[in-house]
């Protein structure tokens, strides 16, 4: 639980993007369709425009602030509502102050400009209410809880990210893959997002994974996909748990990127019945502790198996085989 030495503003602060315009060389102005930004997902995807020459974009944003922020008897003065856009990977932080709009001080509106050269992947955007409280200027008295995302890589405004799947021949492919030429796939977890490399030199694998054939083919395919996913989730879990930032008291922090998402999804199966924060601490302690974490491996495997929906794929296959046998017997 948190406590602050000043009065904060209760209630919900929310942010909305209402228009996005790409600006390019020679002052090109290209307003994006509203389908390029989703109010449901809270994502802006300039990649929708399919033009690659833009240099910066201007977002029109609107924040909604609880009415009591501007009530005459409030303890807050010099109220400011600012939108902050930041991306950790590029150490970029842009702040724009909004101006009060209609609706008696509840709506605040303004623009926020994003320079493309300043960002690499996903920038997040939040709104903060700032005021002077008890003579101290610049206090943050409220902030939005769910960030908006400006996703420079995606071509659709969706929050979920799909891991990259690359089909490549390992034998002639990138150097590091050549050593793996006899296996059907390899997971690379070192980049911005994990990549699954499917070996096209392993004959038939990509056709099987991507295909749609007889019922037997499809059963094998689903089982194969389940197997592949188990490998993926095991690998990404180990990567995520292996590179944690640790607080002074030894408590590990959740990473901010996909690693955090993966941990939050899988930890409840690795360490059941505990809050995820506790579970993370537990796994980290075991991994770095003297007693080792071999006893945790089955749990990690269990979590990956569940995440990959192996039980469902397998039971479907077994039932399918049964009925095929019955058909053959009849």
């Amino acid at each position: 639980m948190r406590a602050y030495p000043y009065r904060r503003l209760p209630g919900v602060v929310s942010l909305r993007v209402t228009a996005v315009e790409l600006r390019g060389p020679d002052d090109i102005r290209d307003p994006l369709d509203t389908s390029a930004f989703s109010a449901v997902e809270q994502v802006v995807a300039p990649g929708v425009s399919e033009r690659d020459d833009w240099e910066w974009l201007r977002m029109t944003v609107e924040a909604t602030v609880p009415g009591r922020a501007t009530a005459p008897d409030s303890p807050w003065t010099d109220l400011a509502v600012v939108v902050v856009l930041s991306e950790g990977a590029t150490n970029t932080r842009i702040t724009t102050a909004l101006a009060p709009g209609a609706e008696g001080g509840r709506q605040w509106v303004g623009h926020l400009d994003l320079w493309r050269a300043d960002h690499r992947d996903r920038a997040s955007m939040s709104v903060h209410v700032v005021a002077t409280v008890d003579g101290v200027a610049g206090r943050e008295i409220a902030a939005s809880t769910k960030d908006w995302i400006v996703d420079l890589k995606s071509e659709a405004p969706l929050r979920d990210r799909e891991l990259d799947v690359v089909e490549v021949g390992f034998r002639e492919g990138p150097q590091w893959l050549r050593g793996f030429h006899e296996v059907p796939w390899v997971v690379d977890t070192s980049g911005d997002l994990p990549v699954v490399h499917i070996n096209t030199d392993f004959e038939g694998v990509s056709d099987l994974v991507g295909g749609n054939g007889t019922s037997v083919d499809n059963m094998v395919r689903d089982l194969l996909i389940a197997q592949l996913c188990t490998d993926v989730w095991t690998a990404v879990f180990h990567t995520a748990i292996g590179d944690l930032e640790i607080e002074d008291d030894g408590t590990p922090l959740f990473p901010r990127d996909w690693r955090g998402e993966v941990l939050r999804e899988m930890l409840p199966d690795v360490v059941p019945d505990r809050p995820v924060e506790d579970a993370l601490g537990e796994v980290h302690r075991r991994r770095t502790g003297t007693s080792g974490w071999t006893d945790l491996q089955p749990r990690i495997h269990y979590a990956a198996t569940r995440r990959a929906d192996v039980p469902k794929a397998l039971s479907t296959t077994i039932r399918g085989l049964d009925s095929i046998h019955r058909g053959a017997d009849a």
Binding site: A80, V82, T95, A97, W115, H128, V130
Partner: peptide, 21 residues
């Protein structure tokens, strides 16, 4: 900085990408 927004107390110039380009 968890309670004070230095961006508001001490605003920076607006970001402009042209000089860099």
């Amino acid at each position: 900085a968890a309670t004070l927004m230095y961006d508001v107390v001490a605003p920076d110039a607006a970001r402009d990408g042209k000089p860099l380009r």
